[in-house]
Design a protein around this nucleic acid. Structure first.
Length: 105
DNA sequence: CATTTGACGCTCT
DNA sequence: TAGAGCGCCAAAT
């Protein structure tokens, strides 16, 4: 499991997360060769525009993604736009939480 | 080995 | 807000 339930992440975000800044396209490339019945929540991965990457080459898997997101309670526009700002996932970039006293966010 | 292509991202108009 | 232009990196041809 990469992305928590009802959370969204962008390609660039993931790329940067795995230490491949600027390699967002490779993330998309990886998902592309991904077998559909996958254990990975690929449908929670969208582009930085806050939309599903709609493309004919996906042969409809993009629309499937839209349905899946809606199924999770995330409203998706006909254009594939979604409330990314409100569902953006925060990767575990905290290997050693200093102290909860300084917690904010 | 050189080019083209692509589920991307950021900036400027 | 939408569209165009340019940068990026790995795979395919």
């Amino acid at each position: 499991m990469l992305i928590p339930f009802r959370k969204l992440a962008t390609y660039g975000q993931i790329a940067d997360w795995i230490g491949a800044h600027g390699s967002a396209r490779q993330v998309g490339w990886a998902l592309r060769r991904l077998p559909l019945p996958s254990d990975i929540p690929w449908h929670r991965v969208i582009n930085a525009k806050g939309q599903i990457s709609m493309n004919p080459s996906r042969e409809g898997s993009d629309w499937l993604q839209r349905e899946l997101l809606i199924a999770e309670g995330i409203p998706v526009d006909q254009q594939g736009r979604l409330p990314l700002r409100e569902h953006l996932w925060k990767p575990d970039l905290r290997p050693k939480p200093v102290n909860e006293s300084s917690k904010q966010n």
